[in-house]
Amino acid sequence: MSEKKPKKVFMEGPIPPEKIAKSIANHQSKTNIGAHSIFLGQVRADEIEGKVVKGIDYSAYEDMAEKAFHEIRESAFEKYDMTCCHIYHSLGMVKTGELCLFVFTSSAHRKVAIEACEYLVEEIKANVPIFGKEVFEDDSHKWKVNQ
């Protein structure tokens, strides 16, 4: 792994759509990029045991999670010829319909950007210690095992 400084991944609350638009706009000056791939994770209003989810309250072992994010990001750079990679994940309450995960990859070519984005999402879901507590409309809750 390289000795790059880890980037801050977590943000409190939902990921604002304006952050995504700004990330895209910031890459217009990088003329060596030919493709971007974006994954957006959104909280669903699932019905579980007759109750409807109104949001997910995310928590994490932040130091461990930030380290895992960094390792996954660096492994993606080793595996794929990416130009840029940005990852953001929510902490705290995120209501249904709001965004909780933003993965943004850039490359000279679309196939690389798409494959790298998919790789990152799957690695994050499998290996980062983030926990979600589903909060129902009646304010009861249930821990969500795999997000």
Rank of each mutant, 00 (worst) to 15 (best):
G92C: 02
D63A: 14
M64N: 14
M82G: 06
F69Q: 12
G55Y: 10
M93Y: 05
L99E: 09
R73G: 01
T96Q: 10
I87M: 11
A108N: 07
G55L: 10
E78A: 13
T96D: 03
S59R: 14
V53R: 00
G97I: 05
S106G: 13
S107G: 02
L99S: 12
S107M: 04
E71S: 08
F69E: 05
G97W: 01
K95Q: 10
F102N: 02
H89N: 03
Y58M: 13
C100S: 15
A60Y: 11
E78F: 03
K95H: 03
S106H: 03
S106V: 07
K95Y: 07
E98K: 13
C100R: 08
T96F: 00
E98V: 09
H89L: 04
V103T: 00
A76H: 06
T83Q: 13
Y88F: 08
R73W: 04
A68M: 15
E66I: 13
D63E: 15
K67V: 11
T83F: 14
S106D: 08
E78D: 14
K67H: 12
H86N: 07
D57M: 13
G92Y: 12
E98T: 04
C84H: 15
Y58V: 10
R73Y: 08
F69D: 08
S75R: 13
E78N: 11
M64W: 12
C100E: 05
V94D: 02
S90M: 02
R73A: 12
C100G: 09
T105Q: 00
S75V: 09
S75Y: 05
C84M: 14
A60Q: 09
L91H: 00
D57C: 09
S107W: 11
